[in-house]
Each structure stands twice: as structure tokens, then as C-alpha cells.
Design a protein around this nucleic acid. Structure first.
Length: 255
DNA sequence: CGTGCCCCCTGTCAGC
DNA sequence: TGCTGACAGGGGGCAC
């Protein structure tokens, strides 16, 4: 049970700190889940807390009596009955904590796209969605309303595995490339999850450990290095203000 | 409505 | 050393 809430960084919340703290106090955390890149606490009575970690957010468990101080960048502390605490810490404060009722949570969840590892995300479905957009495919993959849960690293990795240039408009992807993209998205996510994620710099799991997928990236962050599949050299470009990486031979440019 | 761009914020690193 | 600018795994808001 959440006995009390301390808010040190109100800008992490989508509502005034007082309302948030009052709304969460007394709630029982029944189940912890995930939707896209969001951690979701399903609580009773009728409360759903959605936590987006942004770039540097961390959710940490602080056991009762732990002499270690709270992290420097602690933004919100959930004091649990019994003396333990759950701590949300975030250096850059790009993360967000949003409180919903069950009803408003379901409405919000519908604004997100399919789960790429879910059963309903099929190659056929992907083809239909791609056909509706002119966005560069790298931007398309990052848009959480299309597919929920892919970020810049895994978008780039999946496009390389599928042999698709990141700037290619979604609807211009050849039919023969859709199934490979579908497969690549799922393969990359599964492998990264199995490796506990990718630590470029900041990412740590709740136990404070680094993910081990970083050394297994084949395209992301490898500008100037040889392609792992051909004699080409990896290029870095910028699409919508974010880095994109590709091999000019394995991922031929549009036109 | 779909799309693209800017911005939020702090820390780190390369280059001078 | 110290300064400056570029860059970082995300996503909301706004203009067109």
C-alpha cells in the first residue's frame, strides 16, 4: 500500500503535486504491467499510474532501513506501508508520471499503437498501416501511435536487419520487405529484452545493472565503422533531429 | 488529420 | 585546465 507520496520535482507530473499525492495515497498496487514504453501500476481503488521513463528515468526500490541516501535526482518518492519505498529518479526530467482512472486509462491506452510483440501485430497488419503514411520509416517506427514500444536504437537496428533505408517513406516500402521488417522488429526487441536492454550511458535496470545489448548493436552508433554484412561503411544522417544510421549498400537510398 | 519541427533538461565528451 | 558546442535511449505541443 502506498502510505504517502513525496514530490520533489512537480514538473514530472501531469497534474498539481498535491492532487497527485492525495490521489495516490492509500492506493494498493495490485499489479505492475507495461504498455509500449510505459510502466503501469494497476491500483485499487480505481487508479492506474503510468510511468514513462523518458531518457534517464529510473524506478528503484529502496528497502526499509537502507542506509544509502536516495538518489541525487529523486523526483518522486512513494512511501510504502512497512517502510520500504519506491523511488522515481530522473536526471533530465523528460519522464512523466500520469494518474488515470480505469476508464481514462483505457481511453489513453487506445491512443497507442499495437504491441510489436503482441499476437495482433502481424505482417499483414503492418503492411496495411505502412500504406497509410508518407513519413520516413524511421520516424514512423518511433511514432508510438503506430506501434508502441520502439525507440531510436531498435528502429535503426530493425531497419538494418530488414535492409530498408531509414528515410524511405513508409508507404514506399516494397511489399517484399514488409515481412522482413516485421520479423526484424520482433527479433531485435526480443534479443534486446533477453540482454536486459542497451546501456549507452545512463540506462540501468531496477537493480542498478547495465543492459548488455550495447556491444551487439550492428548499426546504431557505428558511424564510420565497417558494415557487419558488406565492405561498406556505416553512415550517420539526421532525420527529424535524431540520429539515423545505415549502410548505403545494404540499405539503398530512396530513388 | 497527418506531418515535421522545436523544445523541455542535465550531463558528458570532443575539440580548441 | 577551462570553455563551447554537439549530442544523448522520448515525446508533447504547435504550426502548416
Amino acid at each position: 500500500m502506498i502510505a504517502g507520496v513525496r514530490v520533489r520535482r512537480p514538473d514530472l507530473l501531469s497534474e498539481p503535486a498535491g492532487a497527485f499525492a492525495r490521489g495516490m495515497a492509500g492506493a494498493e498496487i495490485d499489479q505492475v504491467g507495461r504498455r509500449g514504453k510505459n510502466v503501469v501500476w494497476f491500483c485499487s481503488p480505481d487508479t492506474v499510474l503510468v510511468i514513462n521513463l523518458g531518457m534517464t528515468g529510473r524506478l528503484l526500490f529502496h528497502p526499509r532501513g537502507d542506509p544509502a541516501p536516495l538518489p541525487i535526482h529523486t523526483g518522486v518518492t512513494f512511501d510504502l506501508a512497512g517502510g520500504d519505498a519506491a523511488v522515481y529518479s530522473d536526471v533530465r526530467r523528460f519522464g512523466r508520471l500520469r494518474r488515470f482512472s480505469g476508464r481514462s486509462w483505457r481511453r489513453w491506452s487506445r491512443t497507442l499503437g499495437l504491441e510489436p510483440l503482441g499476437r495482433s501485430f502481424t505482417a499483414r497488419r503492418l503492411a496495411a498501416e505502412l500504406a497509410r503514411s508518407r513519413s520516413p520509416i524511421r520516424s514512423w517506427l518511433l511514432d508510438q501511435r503506430r506501434v508502441a514500444g520502439i525507440g531510436n536504437i531498435y528502429a535503426n537496428e530493425a531497419l538494418f536487419l530488414a535492409g530498408i533505408h531509414p528515410a524511405l517513406p513508409a508507404r514506399a516500402i516494397p511489399a517484399a520487405k514488409v515481412a522482413p521488417l516485421h520479423r526484424a522488429m520482433r527479433r531485435v526487441l526480443r534479443a534486446a529484452i533477453a540482454a536486459c536492454g542497451t546501456t549507452l550511458r545512463d540506462y540501468r535496470d531496477p537493480a542498478g545493472l547495465e543492459g548488455s545489448f550495447g556491444p551487439r548493436l550492428v548499426i546504431y552508433g557505428r558511424e564510420g565503422q565497417p558494415c557487419v554484412k558488406c565492405p561498406g561503411v556505416v553512415l550517420r544522417t539526421v532525420i527529424s533531429n535524431r540520429s539515423a544510421f545505415h549502410c548505403p549498400h545494404c540499405q539503398p537510398p530512396p530513388q
